[in-house]
Design a protein around this nucleic acid. Structure first.
Lengths: 241, 241
DNA sequence: TTATTATTGTAACACAATGATACAATAGTT
DNA sequence: AACTATTGTATCATTGTGTTACAATAATAA
């Protein structure tokens, strides 16, 4: 990241990047029975946004998205899925970006490539909260986790992008079996159920949930046990694949 | 379409269109127990491709896709869904497009905007085969239906785009109840089952299929009957919504 | 050591959904 | 009026899920 140009960095010339296309990443984490989203704050603006970036001229879009998520979380081998492209003309709000660039110490001319209309490719990522290391870029004041239920207002249509990402996550949670990407390597059945209940925002019946999960044949019981409170200790599980 | 510039038309200056982004539409039809795809053939090239187009500077991407499908089929109120954006660098094959433009009577300079790298937003449409009127643009030799199982080779990655569209259609057929968009207004339970069997490429049990469909409460029995062969006549149904 | 307590793992039953077979009800044809 | 192919649906078996119940712990307290 030292020599190489960062995705979040504003490149005055736009050299080396595709114009008119950006990537926005909804990076989900799970902690304390809460779904979290990683948000960045542009320097000296108080404006919050999804981590994003641009696509290099020789780069696949999916690789650019991996790069963006990797730069913000420090993680590789991430679950990442492209879920929608946001291409309404009404997204085009150059004033907001002008403010961001000005606060960043640039006086962008009106025809600047970053002030033209942009289309955003939306990706959502599922990461292990305990392993992610939120990392701001130079032009950010911060890069931190926020409760999904307690996000600050976001620039542009980023709030709707988060909303659509959540809808997609919910729809895919069961049939694509992607939930475990949000958990650490080892976890209890209770952890897994809490994750499902949080994502789907509804209570599930414990016996049915356990039966279903075990019947899928994707869980390895580690025969180890927890040491916790005054009660029977749960088994730890690991996803096999 | 006379005054207004067509989406399929090659615009030498690229004025009025977003650069670097195109739309490709996989337009599905259903006829004779076969899934059909609408393909165009570029003039004097023998090159087949998906109907596509570009996005006007003031146009929403979804509207551009509607326009493309409408121009090729003559239909409005179409079921249309954006399913993926194809953004690999390896898609960039300027020679193929150079050939198309040359055959169209243009000698494109090397820096021409249509010879730059493009990203394609993939849409799939479900239309009533009996109502669609395939309509070529000026630069096409033809615009016709092809059996999904018997398509000519397509330019670029268009065959993969069709493949991914079909995967998406299969995944959504049941849970989004979109199949009826491929049928005419009135149809028999047998028609509907044949459609499902063709799309999913597997046999279904007649009693179970009928029970399931009727239990959904989305079918209106028209109490009319067919006059066909030497057997009991089936009811006609219509989707209600 | 032995109760106590909270929680886990799973058995057991009810109910719903689906797979599969059977058969009566036709719309023609012979 | 008998025959034939197909439709509509009843029926039963099987599977999956919702729900209740309870034995098996892992600490803590007596």
């Amino acid at each position: 990241m030292s020599e190489q140009r960062e995705a979040g960095e504003i490149n005055p010339g736009g050299l080396g990047y595709l114009k008119g296309i950006a990537i926005d990443a909804v990076i989900f984490g799970f902690h304390d029975s809460q779904l979290k989203v990683l948000l960045i704050e542009y320097k000296r603006t108080g404006l919050f946004a999804l981590p994003g970036g641009f696509i290099r001229e020789l780069e696949n879009i999916n690789d650019a998205a991996l790069r963006v998520v990797s730069e913000r979380t420090g993680l590789d081998n991430i679950f990442l899925d492209q879920f929608y492209i946001f291409g309404d003309y009404s997204r085009y709000q150059p004033d907001e970006f002008k403010k961001i660039m000005s606060a960043g110490g640039m006086a962008p001319p009106d025809g600047h490539w970053l002030l033209q209309r942009f289309v955003s490719v939306g990706y959502y990522a599922l990461v292990d909260f305990t392993r992610a290391k939120p990392t701001p870029a130079i032009i950010f004041d911060s890069c931190e986790w926020y409760d999904l239920t307690n996000m600050p207002p976001l620039i542009q249509d980023h709030t709707q992008i988060v909303r659509k990402a959540l809808d997609t996550l919910r729809a895919h949670l069961d049939d694509k079996l992607i939930g475990f990407n949000l958990l650490p390597e080892e976890f209890t059945m209770g952890d897994l159920q809490q994750l499902y209940e949080t994502v789907l925002d509804k209570k599930l019946l414990r016996p049915a949930f356990q039966r279903k999960m075990l019947s899928l044949g994707i869980l390895e019981r580690l025969s180890k046990k927890f040491s916790g409170g005054a009660h029977k200790a749960p088994y730890l599980y690991r996803f096999i694949k």
